[in-house]
Design a protein around this nucleic acid. Sequence first.
DNA 1: CTCAGTGCAAACGATTTGCAGGGCC
DNA 2: GGCCCTGCAAATCGTTTGCACTGAG
Lengths: 129, 129
Amino acid sequence: MKNRETNQRSIILEELRKVTTHPTASDIYEMVKKVLPRVGLATVYRNLDFLEKKGEIIRLKFNFQKSRYDGNIEGHAHLVCKCCGKVTDIFDVADIKIKSEQLRNSGFKPTLEFIEIPGLCKKCNKIYR
Amino acid sequence: MKNRETNQRSIILEELRKVTTHPTASDIYEMVKKVLPRVGLATVYRNLDFLEKKGEIIRLKFNFQKSRYDGNIEGHAHLVCKCCGKVTDIFDVADIKIKSEQLRNSGFKPTLEFIEIPGLCKKCNKIYR
DNA sequence: CTCAGTGCAAACGATTTGCAGGGCC
DNA sequence: GGCCCTGCAAATCGTTTGCACTGAG
């Protein structure tokens, strides 16, 4: 009786799965509009929220003003250049180790698959060397 | 000739240094208003931006809608509970190790001091166990 | 048939900006 | 005295919401 499989919802997910970029809601809106010209932006937002809650997609936060979305839910991390904003996916982080007694004592359970690692990309690092 | 040391700017920094919470811009606005009743919210925003660019404070991104700020620039990480939103400071992360060939090959230089680690806090982890 | 989902437009809330006046250097 | 900074108000922009309608189950 709940969670209906609408055309809009499946196409939004489908379009997001297609790309390896990390589009914003309006990017996705534009992508979906090519398939469903009458779709509304609010529908895109509502479905992105829905899909995130379901764990089908990931909402990224590296950009302050607008959210970005990732249709790839294979556990992976993001490298985010603080200088140029470039985002790189890293898939082989199964074994990130954090050595911190405070962390161990806190009882906090990290979800390292979705971590966003700030830093400087190769290009920007050269400039600032 | 540039970067004047105004009363507003130093009080904003001073107030932010005092607390160990991670206040939003309006939280800081309220704090500063107690000292400078005629201060404007825009001034707070402009100075927070300024101070962040100068590296005097850190702008945190764990909250989607509004930015939070940290006056403690001693290298430390944040544990962010995805469930209840609780944020915990971790100071002994000098030796976070990330074992990733992709990362090594990418030439990306991580700034691990400012990393935000998602996960579940002790309390929420129990609930979801 | 029912009600979750949609499209549209208006509302919202955090942040930014234009502008005239103020005060640091 | 120059011009960076401020306070105020209005503007901006991403996101959310109210509402009547639609279509999936």
